[in-house]
Design a protein around this nucleic acid. Structure first.
Length: 822
RNA sequence: GCCGGGAUGGCGGAAUGGCAGACGCUACGGACUUAAAAUCCGUUGGGAAGUAAUUCCCGUGUGGGUUCGAAUCCCUCUCCCGGCACCA
């Protein structure tokens, strides 16, 4: 055979990328009515350091999936955009003096170039950018809709405060209780904040998880975050004060007779009202200290409990007993009603507190399993179920039943009611930052809080000279008079603008709704188009967004559904979390996720130059199962390069041989390959899909003959993985006048694959002793006879009685023999 | 502390009740070459016996169990990773 053309990716890849772009083959007409498939990547934050091979992984994964679906005849929407508001750009501005708009634009250009090198089928005509006024105009619009529905409100909230930087910090900027930027210890400060009432959706956000095809891990994380707990609200009256009532939340109303004291959070509004005068100075001091302590400090679990007695007593509604009221910072103000009843016998935290302050412990649930001291007293709280004791008419009742009975009994006198509480808190939506969407609100002396008129959106983010926090904890916008000074939309009188901006999560909470109609000028989206394309069929991204982004996006979607803006109430049907790419870090001496700070990033650019995009794509997938973390080793990529070279030679050889038909064995091998690759793409087992190709090429018989048509099928099969190579073979060597991605995914014929004869292992006592080749439909008895005559099998059957014979058709043969007598 | 995931050759991994280590890397040996690169072929979990074909034993973090048969299912423990963490 004459010398065939060598595989040279550098002469193939840029050419086809240009061709695809010119012919717009990845542009999606979103008005189409044919069957759709929305395959979405979590859009990136355009950082200055560009993409590394870890970022590639998810993008390659989604691209293979999207191309596969396209070959199956779906209309694909596979867009890309930029989550470009956020802190890094602003921090850069402070450090280097580059305007965030400039640095963001530059970064986007660089990353777009890198993304194009992946050769993914992104429809770049639908690119969106969250910091583009044409986009954030609609983010502001959504905020106003929430405001109208009472879901956006202002409240005085304690936030993370860095006393050194004199600014409020987002939770993400607090690392182990310290400021990310200067390292000083973060305290809490009460400030007026914009809040979103996500708690109004807690129940739906929780229950709708059941219909999502998401990793169980992510669903569990969201469930825990929402933290539903069912219990009861109990009313305690204050002794000698018939007007004041204390509400506590408990999940254990069955232990109510064992409540020996009540505890309020230091922030509880009634603390000073009920405190007796002799205790006042002590209580005030305790509250003051508690309030300046950071959340982190307060929630140190190992910390010894502190507290102070108010001098006041509450009345236990079950038995009228007087029990003391304490204040302690182990009780959280923002959960339940900010007050608890303490049952030290049956709650470990209460038990510790009671021991520390010598408060009584009354057992009300008996169990033989409770851990006790030698004198019979409890050594620790017994938190399990049991029969009630010391509970008057409820004695002997099972604790599970008592939970209901006791509440029902108190309910008659309005002293208790069943209640559900969530851990989920409302979303602090204000940031005292420059680089974010301005909150479209105006403060008027006469009219108060007034939303900006919708037709005057967007409220443009103004130019600013200094990005530094002003020192007052206000955003840098507060220093720009031309921005702040405005007129009231209602009375046209003088007014000032809100100067806080939205958090980074705002723009990403609805971007998937904008992609199908990115250029719409008159609305955030066209409901007809959105309803056709949403929900996203497959959403691919890292697990680090398991809670915040995915929860916020679900919240926005449900809200927009409720106001009739869209017809879907869950944004992402199926979620796939790709694993991280890790590499040994010289700095930390261990395997770490790739990051600039760990000094372990691998830049794909030189790899693309040396091996070509298709090889890098293949290796990204071959490195390991897509959903688990994998370690990057540079040497492994060689194997993928060699494989593609063999594929290239093989296909060209077959084409040049000009075979009229495919031989029987080859037809069987190709059908088996189609079956394996199809199944493995469906299951996201892309590493083994590639192994299947490698085996196919490696075990190729010398005399294999494939027809042109079967070579086309092979090339189609490979095209999602190595699109450039496939396109070159398809158009140039197989002579097709159109792109391979308009071809049809091949199907397999299971009749061709199925074997007439099968080779199965033969065991004696569960140990493999030989193999036997038999007709698939052969009679079991006959197989046993033949098998027992195999030398290596017969040796172990000699002088032994076979007590059981097992034949699993197509799988295994096993002789169970009697134990040998000594 | 609680919840979830994981541990398989020198390395990445395959096999989810039926021949453990597919596929790839590395290493070693060989072919081609003046030489190298590239390419191709072979060997590559540990141990033992045999001139050899081959055969046997051990082996999937630990210890136990279920089963004719376990990397796979159940229980125990150890370690690693992730999430939550005084949520009453």
């Amino acid at each position: 055979m004459e010398k065939i053309k060598k595989y040279d990716p550098s002469s193939i890849e840029p050419k086809w990328r240009r061709n695809w772009e010119e012919k717009k083959i990845y542009c999606t007409d979103t008005n189409t009515s044919s069957k759709k498939y929305y395959c979405l990547d979590m859009f990136p934050y355009p950082s200055g350091s560009g993409l590394h091979v870890g970022h590639w992984r998810g993008y390659v994964l989604s691209d293979v999936h999207a191309r596969y679906k396209r070959l199956q005849g779906y209309h694909i929407l596979h867009p890309m955009g930029w989550d470009s508001f956020g802190l890094p750009a602003e921090n850069d501005a402070i450090k280097k003096g580059i305007h965030p708009r400039i640095s963001t634009r530059n970064n986007i250009e660089n990353i777009r170039r890198q993304l194009k090198e992946i050769g993914a089928m992104y429809d770049w005509t639908k690119e969106i950018n969250t910091s583009d006024p044409e986009y954030y105009r609609w983010t502001q619009w959504i905020f106003l809709q929430m405001y109208k529905k009472g879901l956006a409100y202002r409240a005085e909230m304690p936030i993370n405060w860095c006393p050194n930087c004199k600014t409020g910090l987002a939770n993400e900027e607090v690392i182990n209780g310290n400021c990310e930027r200067c390292g000083s210890s973060v305290t809490r400060k009460k400030m007026m904040q914009w809040m979103l009432r996500i708690t109004a959706y807690a129940d739906r956000l929780l229950s709708d998880l059941d219909r999502l095809d998401w990793p169980e891990k992510v669903k569990t994380m969201q469930r825990n975050w929402i933290g539903k707990s069912e219990g009861a609200s109990i009313i305690f009256r204050i002794d000698n004060d018939s007007k004041t009532e204390l509400e506590v939340f408990t999940t254990r109303p069955d232990t109510l007779f064992g409540a020996t004291y009540v505890v309020l959070a230091p922030e509880h509004p009634l603390t000073l009202k009920i405190t007796t005068s002799d205790k006042m100075s002590e209580v005030k001091k305790y509250i003051e200290e508690a309030l300046t302590r950071s959340d982190i400090e307060r929630t140190q679990i190992a910390r010894e409990k502190t507290g102070v007695f108010t001098g006041a007593y509450a009345i236990n509604p079950t038995n009228g007993k007087k029990i003391p009221v304490w204040i302690a910072d182990y009780v959280l103000a923002h959960y339940g009603s900010g007050a608890i009843m303490s049952v030290p016998a049956h709650d470990q935290r209460d038990f510790e507190f009671a021991k520390r302050f010598n408060l009584p412990v009354i057992e009300v649930i008996y169990s033989a399993n409770a851990k006790r001291n030698s004198d019979g007293s409890l050594a620790e709280a017994y938190q399990g179920p049991g029969k009630l004791i010391n509970s008057e008419q409820f004695d002997e009742v099972d604790s599970e039943r008592a939970k209901i009975e006791i509440v029902k009994w108190l309910e008659k006198n309005k002293k208790a009611s069943f209640k559900i509480t969530y851990k989920l808190r409302d979303w602090v939506f204000s940031r005292q930052r420059y680089w974010g969407e301005p909150i479209p609100i105006v403060y008027c002396e006469k009219c108060g809080i007034v939303p900006v008129d919708e037709k005057n959106l967007p409220v443009l983010l103004p130019e600013v000279e200094s990005y530094k926090p002003t020192g007052t904890g206000k955003s840098p916008l507060a220093g720009i008079e031309t921005f702040v000074k405005t007129s009231c939309p209602e009375c046209k009188g003088p007014a000032t603008r809100e100067t806080d901006t939205m958090p980074q999560w705002a723009g990403s909470s609805w971007y998937f709704l904008r992609y199908p109609n990115p250029d719409l000028k008159t609305a955030a989206f066209d409901r007809k188009v959105v309803d056709r394309w949403l929900p996203v069929d497959c959403y691919i991204g890292g697990v680090e967004h398991a809670i915040l982004h995915l929860l916020y996006a679900r919240f926005f979607t449900k809200f927009l559904y409720d106001i009739g803006a869209i017809g879907v109430d869950e944004p992402f049907l199926r979620l796939f979390n790709q694993g991280m790419v890790t590499k040994f870090s010289e700095k930390t001496r261990k395997l770490e996720k790739m990051s600039k700070s760990k000094g372990n990033v691998v830049n794909p650019d030189p790899l693309v130059k040396k091996y070509g995009t298709d090889t890098v794509r293949l290796y990204e997938l071959f490195i390991g199962p897509p959903e688990v973390d994998s370690e990057w080793t540079d040497s492994g990529i060689e194997g993928c390069y060699r494989f593609l070279k063999r594929v290239w030679d093989f296909v060209i050889q077959q084409i040049e041989a000009n075979n009229q038909s495919t031989d029987i064995d080859s037809r069987k091998r190709l059908n088996l390959l189609i079956k394996k690759v199809t199944e493995r793409i469906e299951d996201f087992k892309l590493n083994t899909a590639i192994s299947a190709f490698m085996e196919f090429i490696k075990d190729m018989p010398e005399n294999a003959r494939y027809s042109k048509q079967d070579m086309e099928n092979f090339v189609i099969l490979l095209s999602p993985f190595a699109p450039h190579l496939a396109e070159e073979l398809w158009q140039k060597f197989l002579g097709n006048p159109y792109t391979v991605f308009n071809a049809k995914w091949p199907s397999f014929d299971s009749k061709i694959i199925s074997e007439q004869t099968i080779t199965i292992p033969v065991q004696v006592d569960g140990k493999i002793r030989g193999t036997i080749t038999v007709e698939k439909a052969a009679d079991p008895e006959k197989i046993f006879q033949l098998a027992s005559k195999i030398d290596t099998v017969a040796r172990f059957l000699k002088d032994r009685k076979v007590i059981k014979k097992i034949y699993v058709p197509g799988k295994i043969l096993n002789f169970v023999v009697e134990k040998k007598k000594e």
